[in-house]
């Protein structure tokens, strides 16, 4: 087993803090699966309020480490992540949630779980390995663990009867999942890459709140459809903003089918404006209000950062040499 050494730096500094933005394995889009008319927005016809579950996750690097095994030295980290759901069916309430901890080492090195005493309780850090060994590899692995946990939670909610789940962030369309037809919609806040040609993308400027673009298909390298996507506007575009502000991109798995995907697009586009992020939110309005509250709530449940960090340092002191 490797020997773990703590990096004294605050994890917010140093080795790069953001996980690599997901590089989509879906290089192409087919804009004309629903309609060829991209000249005007489609206004979602609301069927009235309906129950909806929001799913999100948060993660945190508690301590960066270096793992030494013989001649090899790879980066790693102790991290915490939490995923949870908010049920909105007239009243908004926190629903299921899960707090997990992981000790991650890079370069495929094997590592055991670590049981760390913290106050009157102990925290179990489950082992995980990142295959790459670059400095960002452990963080990317943590991000992936969180994404998987989110995906599992969404599936669990659908399994127990949730009619609609809005997951924060992209859906990992490149991978095969069991319930491909589940009504799970990924709501993506950021423009990572351009899917549309300028001719179609011009429509985004014309979207009003509750409007959407036609549904377009996302294709992989083999040109097979992996998902359907659309853009929707949450709030009125205000003068100083760029024309993509206040717009989110939604996506569903291809397994849902085109027609149901268009149906979901209608329902979700109509729903979204009422859940738009509060102006006080630094990521308003795309950071939806239930999601913002859920993030705070989950962060709190991961425990106090410095208490966990101190417990880890104490633990490493005890095991060293």
């Amino acid at each position: 087993m490797p020997v773990l050494y703590a990096d004294p730096w605050n994890p917010e500094f140093g080795m790069g803090y953001d996980a690599a933005l997901e590089d989509s394995p879906l290089p192409r889009a087919d804009p004309f699966v629903e309609s060829t008319d991209w000249s005007r927005p489609l206004t979602a016809s609301s069927a009235g309020p309906e129950p909806v579950w929001f799913v999100d996750g948060v993660r945190r690097v508690d301590l960066r480490i270096l793992a030494d095994e013989g001649e090899r030295r790879v980066p790693g980290l102790f991290g915490s992540y939490a995923v949870g759901a908010v049920r909105c069916d007239g009243a908004a309430a926190f629903d299921r949630h899960r707090v997990c901890r992981a000790v991650i080492v890079a370069g495929g090195m094997r590592q055991d779980g670590v049981d760390v005493r913290c106050g009157a309780r102990s925290l179990m850090f489950e082992p995980a390995t990142a295959s790459r060994s670059d400095p960002n590899a452990p963080l990317d692995k943590l991000q992936e663990l969180m994404r998987v946990a989110e995906q599992n939670l969404s599936a669990e909610l659908v399994g127990s009867g949730a009619p609609l789940v809005l997951a924060d962030g992209p859906l990992r369309l490149g991978e095969e999942v069991a319930e491909r037809g589940a009504p799970v919609v990924g709501v993506v806040k950021r423009f990572v890459r351009q899917y549309l040609e300028p001719a179609e993308e011009a429509l985004l400027t014309k979207l009003g709140p509750g409007d959407r673009t036609p549904v377009f298909a996302l294709l992989d390298r083999e040109d097979s459809v992996r998902g359907y996507s659309w853009y929707a506007r949450l709030v009125e575009l205000r003068p100083p903003w760029h024309d993509h502000a206040g717009v989110v991109r939604c996506e569903v798995r291809a397994g849902v089918g085109l027609e149901p995907a268009v149906g979901l697009a209608e329902r979700v586009t109509a729903l979204l404006p009422s859940y738009a992020g509060r102006p006080s939110d630094p990521r308003a309005p795309q950071n939806l209000a239930p999601v913002a509250a859920l993030e705070e709530w989950l962060k709190h449940r991961m425990g106090h950062r410095w208490l966990v960090r101190r417990a880890l340092l104490t633990h490493l002191l005890g095991t060293e040499g």
């Binding site: 908010v86 908004a92 309430a93 926190f94 859940y275 509060r278 209000a289 239930p290 509250a293 709530w297």
Partner: peptide, 11 residues
Amino acid sequence: FLVERGVLPVD
């Protein structure tokens, strides 16, 4: 008000 409209979950 957001809580009352069922948008913001709180304890």
